Simulated assay, not measured.
Amino acid sequence: MTSKLLDEVRGFEKGCFFDLGHPLLNRVAESFVKAAGIGAIQSVSREAYFTAIEGSELDSSGVPPELPTSTDSKKRHRFPDLRGETNRKSLEALVKSTGKESLQWGLAAGMYSGLTYGLREARGAYDWKNSAVAGAITGMALALTIDDVSHKQIVQCAITGAAISTAANLLSGIF
């Protein structure tokens, strides 16, 4: 049983899930699907953690000790409709938040992968410049998924995306 699972995980990196007729499309689709799955798992596990913490660390007022008792407690909880209940509203909020986060992760991975591929093909080289441009554009796109985004946030996300992507590219030869 374990060897089958390990074979599937190893094949995950080698195999091609899609054949959409062009390497760029294949790369974008595969990156999107893989990252969207990771985003969904991350979202659900984070919410399970917060639900477990809220259930195990309630004080006499019914509020977890790390959360303030004022109306600010709603701001600290990422998904205010989720309260560990088994009702329909809670399930709908979980599905909505998981879908949004999956889409964000998939968007980032697919866009970055497609941009680096396209830049490599257009320039004939794969270097830190491609990574910087792809990271900046991907960072800007992710900033646009934030509610009430400002110009300052878009610029910060572009700079952060470019810096992380460039650092990863430069460090990939070292490690």
Rank of each mutant, 00 (worst) to 15 (best):
T2S: 06
V9G: 00
R10D: 03
G11H: 01
K14R: 04
C16M: 08
C16E: 10
F18C: 05
H22A: 00
P23H: 06
P23K: 07
P23Y: 02
L25D: 02
R27M: 03
S31C: 11
K34M: 06
A35S: 05
A36V: 02
G37A: 09
A40F: 14
S45Q: 08
E47G: 04
T51Q: 12
T51G: 02
I53G: 00
E54C: 12
G55T: 13
G55I: 07
S56W: 15
E57P: 00
D59T: 11
S60D: 14
P65L: 13
P65Q: 08
E66I: 15
T69G: 12
K74I: 14
K74M: 13
R76S: 13
H77N: 15
H77G: 04
F79H: 08
L82N: 11
G84C: 03
R88H: 08
L91T: 07
A93R: 08
A93Q: 10
L94M: 13
K96T: 13
T98A: 10
G99Q: 06
E101M: 13
E101F: 11
E101D: 09
E101G: 05
L103C: 07
G106M: 04
A109V: 06
G110I: 00
G110L: 01
M111F: 11
L115I: 01
R123L: 14
G124L: 10
A125Y: 13
A125I: 14
W128I: 12
K129V: 14
A132M: 12
V133I: 14
I137Y: 10
I137L: 15
G139C: 07
A141T: 09
A143L: 10
T145P: 04
I146M: 13
S150M: 08
S150E: 12
H151F: 15
Q153E: 15
I154R: 02
I154P: 03
V155H: 06
C157F: 15
C157V: 00
I159M: 07
I159W: 06
I159F: 13
G161D: 04
A162Y: 07
A163I: 08
A163G: 05
A167T: 12
N169K: 09
I174E: 05
